[in-house]
Design a binder for these strands. Structure first.
Lengths: 354, 354
DNA sequence: CTGAAAGCGCTTACAG
DNA sequence: CTGAAAGCGCTTACAG
């Protein structure tokens, strides 16, 4: 039933306009001269028949899908909204389409991948949404790939775009130590293998080391960059009467910081008086928490945009940048103990962080 | 260059396995019996050649894209994360692909639509991401469509899934009036044409009417379901020394409520002592605002999931439900003046709203 | 500037 | 259970 109306084809247009399909195709793609007279006739018929060229046929003939794929770990957390927005904007401008998928545990053969070389011209891979073997396989077959928030393995020249994790975390922790005299800082890790988490920990440890503060494994918790996980692990930690003393928490990211807030408040601990808390990302939520969250601003939308750009460079045969490192900056609010409310609050009132 | 490796085709597999392409195709799709012996040979060759069937060719032969499209108004606000998550989950389970696009102002011809019948089997249309003419056109050509948070025009039997806006808003406003003695309640509208906004206003007005409170146009502001817009319009309103008195604000949605919080705080007004504030959606942020936001819980992820389901019913020739109305419930927190912190907070501490 | 024809990589009656 | 061949709806040398 639907078939009937869908089946207006280039042949139908050609017949009705009394030209060849080649001419219709040329008119459609404006890639070869077509006389005014024929153009007019063709356009009229296309309108009349409500003709829409079939993408699949075009892709087959051109051996190009005009589509890129995005693979992310999940779609739930607020982190992905700006990432997606950045990517979609760029994709649209290039006249491409965007296929979105989340990674799934048991992806066996290549062709039941939701996105891959069977249906896209290239892929944007976020963090550990694909494991190293899978990435290696794509790369070996020379399929265009850009990694986001992930470094390629040795020898793989896959362009990647990420943010400055280590230096920013270093500065943040250094700030806690120097300005707020923190000495016993809890570290919340992200998922194992999560590269952002790794580099943030490197920065964390470096800051401690530079102040001769020993790194204490007993002060390490699992946050997974998820509020629920962070909440649970901190609650369990606090429940143990023998838990080691601490005076601050680096939550790993803002999502986890939200869980941290909940757990601390439930335990009757005040932020920052009893415990300083800092996050990472500067999510849209951070300035609205109570107290407003001290964190690191990560330009996530920009990351998405530039990742897409690099992929398009590759698709157009230009050389992509091997690495795009986005700058981050620490944002001091009240949760670390700073009282920047007046100056900062004013600024934010003028233009609410998007 | 990429071409070389991509060009392993079904013909290559057939030749190398010494069978016909028909047999390879049958083995691949498991839609006709293939002997064990040939199956084994084919599988071996496919592995060796790293063969991935080309989707475009399949789509062309089958006249089916195995892909659905989602059109949304934007990707920035946190509202879309759960919607996308619900849709993507369902799409994955059905073995389909998901093309995501935001609506753009100047979409002229059908075939430069980012998604449409040229590249999808059906479309999920969010709210006013498409105008009525465009929807009518798709519908007339019998293209499978499901509307989300939008009612089809008269006579169009397009399935739609939405949430109960009116009754919930009525209850919320009734609550403000009855429990908190509010009489002068500001109404923040969403964008013109936004249907959720329309029905919320209907519920709003009905509640006023039932309590003999006149509806005052001077108490209507534009919030657009965006924090920045809400912030600006409320700030401007407050700046006018002659602004009418008010004792509460229905922000329209939670995003706008965030802008409202900012504006009120900047003006030195306390929530809820000076002004009660309520939102709509129960976004992930709502419980973490200060004070926690009284709002209406909308099951957005569920909405996404069931919208996708309806579309799949259509694609499989089954009958979709003409309308799927998701229930909503009011969530009392502190911003309306309730002091439910103890009971509610406990509950939320146990399981942080996802 | 225009057309006839081959080809893109699959699927599926049709015949055996 | 298997194969030869037509067809899905486009594009693009090639010839004029």
């Amino acid at each position: 039933m639907t078939k009937r109306s869908t089946s207006v084809t280039i042949r139908d247009v050609a017949r009705e306009a009394d030209v060849s399909v080649a001419t219709v195709s040329r008119y459609l793609n404006q890639n070869a001269p077509v006389s005014e007279a024929l153009s007019a006739r063709i356009q009229k018929v296309m309108d009349k028949l409500d003709y829409v060229p079939e993408s699949a046929a075009r892709h087959l003939a051109l051996r190009k899908k005009n589509t890129i794929g995005l693979l992310v770990t999940n779609l739930h957390t607020d982190f992905f909204a700006p990432l997606l927005a950045g990517i979609e904007g760029e994709v649209y401008e290039q006249g491409y389409n965007l296929l979105v998928a989340t990674c799934r545990p048991n992806l066996t053969s290549d062709y039941d991948f939701p996105v891959g070389r069977h249906n896209t011209d290239g892929l944007l891979i976020f963090a550990d949404s694909l494991n190293d073997d899978q990435i290696a396989k794509f790369h070996k077959s020379r399929f265009p790939l850009v990694l986001i928030h992930k470094t390629p393995s040795d020898g793989q020249n896959i362009p990647f775009v990420t943010i400055e994790n280590k230096a920013a975390t270093y500065r943040l922790v250094d700030h806690l130590i120097v300005e707020h005299s923190c000495r016993r800082i809890v570290l919340m890790r992200g998922r194992q293998q999560q590269e952002d988490s790794y580099w943030r920990e490197v920065g964390f440890q470096a800051a401690l080391a530079d102040h001769d503060i020993p790194f204490d494994e007993d002060l390490v918790l699992c946050g997974s960059f998820e509020r629920e996980v962070a909440f649970k692990s901190l609650s369990a930690f606090l429940k143990d009467p023998a838990h080691p003393a601490f005076d601050a928490i680096f939550a790993g990211d803002d999502e986890a910081a939200i869980g941290v807030y909940k757990a601390l408040k439930a335990a009757g601990l005040r932020i920052p008086e009893d415990v300083a808390v800092v996050g990472f990302d500067d999510s849209r939520m951070a300035p609205f928490l109570t107290p407003p969250l001290t964190t690191v601003r990560a330009p996530t939308e920009e990351v998405g945009r530039s990742a897409a750009q690099q992929l398009f460079y590759m698709l157009e045969g230009e050389n992509p940048q091997p690495v795009t490192l986005h700058h981050t900056e620490i944002i001091l609010r009240a949760s670390c103990g700073c009282h920047v409310e007046t100056s900062l609050a004013k600024k934010e009132v003028k233009s609410i962080a998007n």
